[in-house]
Design a binder for these strands. Structure first.
Length: 193
DNA sequence: AATATGATAGTCT
DNA sequence: GACTATCATATTG
């Protein structure tokens, strides 16, 4: 078989399904990456989503074809990486919040300095920094031959969910998903173990 | 340990 | 002028 990297078909499904299936998958940017252990989902009818209210300004990528990167700047200092989901025209995406580092740890440490392994990719900006995700990656399609790839999960995972982090609108929607018991989460989940 | 605060820039009211 | 899908550092207990 050829390259096993996930493409447009995988991401064209409803954002809730994609978010769930992304847990346990491997994300790589130019050979640096790890296993996805925490994500959040955002969709068009969600007041907390950038896509709320239709395509305009920076969010236009969210309404484009699925399987592309949506990269934006947060709080003026940080970069956050999302993967666009659902059919083209629906403004949905999954925010990648934490990875379990697997490949290219040397380059991660070179970028971030001496920090504990479990803090390397525990958070949207930390993850983006370590993988070298930056403004030019906005709108880039995931593909087997491209710089950004997602490889399927090796084994099924146990999923926990809870309220999303850092938002004030629709904060009660439990759309933060994580792998139960992972040591690499950005923050622990409320009720789960 | 928990809580407070500054950095820093694009978007919205 | 206020708010943000954050993080590091400083303060206090």
């Amino acid at each position: 078989m050829s390259e096993p990297a996930l493409g447009e078909e995988f991401f064209a499904r409803p954002v809730g399904v994609v978010a769930r299936d992304l847990l346990g998958c491997t994300l790589e940017h130019e050979g640096v990456g790890g296993v996805i252990v925490e994500v959040e989902r955002y969709q068009e009818d969600d007041p907390a989503s950038h896509s709320y209210g239709g395509p305009r300004g920076r969010n236009t990528v969210m309404f484009g074809p699925p399987g592309r990167a949506y990269v934006y700047r947060s709080y003026g200092v940080h970069w956050c990486l999302n993967l666009v989901c659902g059919p083209a025209g629906t403004g949905a995406a999954v925010l990648l919040r934490a990875l379990e580092p697997r490949t290219g740890l040397e380059r991660m440490r070179a970028r971030r300095g001496p920090v504990a392994d479990r803090l390397l990719c525990a958070g949207p900006d930390r993850l983006a920094q370590d993988l070298g995700v930056d403004a030019p990656l906005n709108g880039v399609a995931l593909s087997a031959g491209g710089p950004l790839r997602v490889l399927p999960a090796a084994a099924p995972v146990r999923v926990v969910r809870g309220p999303r982090i850092g938002i004030s609108r629709a904060a009660d929607r439990p759309w933060r998903l994580g792998i139960a018991g992972s040591a690499y989460l950005s923050r622990p989940f409320p009720r789960a173990a």
